[in-house]
Amino acid sequence: MDSVVREAEADFGPRDWAQHPPYLSPLYKSTVLRSPRKPLIPMKQCLSVRTGPVFGHDSVDALDSDLTKNGRVNGEPVGERIIVTGRVLDESGRPVPHTLLEIWQANACGRYVHRWDQHDAPLDPNFFGAGRCITDAEGRYRFTTIKPGAYPWGNHHNAWRPAHIHFSLFGPSFLTRLVTQMYFPGDPLLPLDPIYNGVPEGARELLISRFSIDVTEPVWALGYEFDIVLRGRLATPMER
């Protein structure tokens, strides 16, 4: 019991800035005026950030993790059906169980449901593009969805975002919060994308999912695996 208490009180390891993009990344033009420029001030981790919201299984329903079903109006959504699954782990490889994931994405044509999206590509009446899931005891999650399309954006001439799915995670504390994007292997737009390339070299590859024939379901859907690593707690004194 003693070790359990100590574990719960241990600080989380720092945000690893060798892994995360800096606030200012000038090739992604919107960062220029939206990047904090003064140095971050170190803060001791107190109760209000070592704890965080816990979303129970009542916060999601079964359809939330199946984006091919949760937006249906009068038929099936159009596009390539895929399965996206993986584990949420901490830095020591321990699963992060019972934590919430939220995802959102464009449809197969590269169009978002969002009312601001004016890209000249069709909306799909049967695809909403948002989902939620809670990891199981082993930190595993699984979504069924449609492979998103690439879409143009205004960052520079002929700019196109590679196909991606937005992921939002909570983990065990306010400090473990993470918002990221998952990409697809072999996408020719990746080397040209300033958002993907805002991540330090050597770290950005972690955002690319792996195609998996084992996850792929025969005569149904291709499978992709994407594991997510959140900040973990630092070592505690030797446990008895």
Binding site: H20, G93, E102, I103, Y112, V199, V229, L234, A235
Partner: peptide
Amino acid sequence: MTQTLKQTPSQTVGPYFAYAWTPEL
């Protein structure tokens, strides 16, 4: 804790999160 895995990098929420995060509308 032995740190064996690297943290997954952060990415922007982008402009189109509202229908997922604040979807009342």
